[in-house]
Amino acid sequence: MSRVRTPVVARWFDGEGDGFRLLGTRCASCAAVFFPREDGFCRNPGCAGGELVEVALSRRGRVWSYTDGRYRPPAPYVSDPELPWEPYTLIAVELAAERMVVLGQAAPGVTVADLEVGMEVEVVPGVLDEDPGEPSTTWTTWHWRPVGVGA
């Protein structure tokens, strides 16, 4: 049975393997960068407003902070209530070129014990959850993974 792979949010990321990137937008007038993407209006109050062009964000950044979720989050987070809760790790990553911090879940298997503030991490494709419905859907997302750690 084949599953449909669908991004959990359309046009926030794209690509496979080393080519995987978060997608934001950049204002053609003032060069402000936005993630999540702004497609309507530039939010720089000093900008008269320019065309917002899709831009791939830096693949690597440094850990600004990190934590984990030891208890099952409420909906709309999807988890199987029949299964014991497996904590997930969250990493806030500082991107130097964009001068911004972007949150994401860590790649599976990465725990808070593996992380330090300032550590280099990279964005990798990941799976958020699998919906067994018809057709069955694999909801894809982005993950942060310490550089030098294999998939």
């Binding site: 402000a32 960068v33 999540p36 900008c47 070129a97 964009e98 001068r99 911004m100 972007v102």
Partner: peptide
């Protein structure tokens, strides 16, 4: 999910 960018 992210801060504003200080790039511009």
């Amino acid at each position: 999910i992210a801060t504003d960018s200080s790039a511009a």
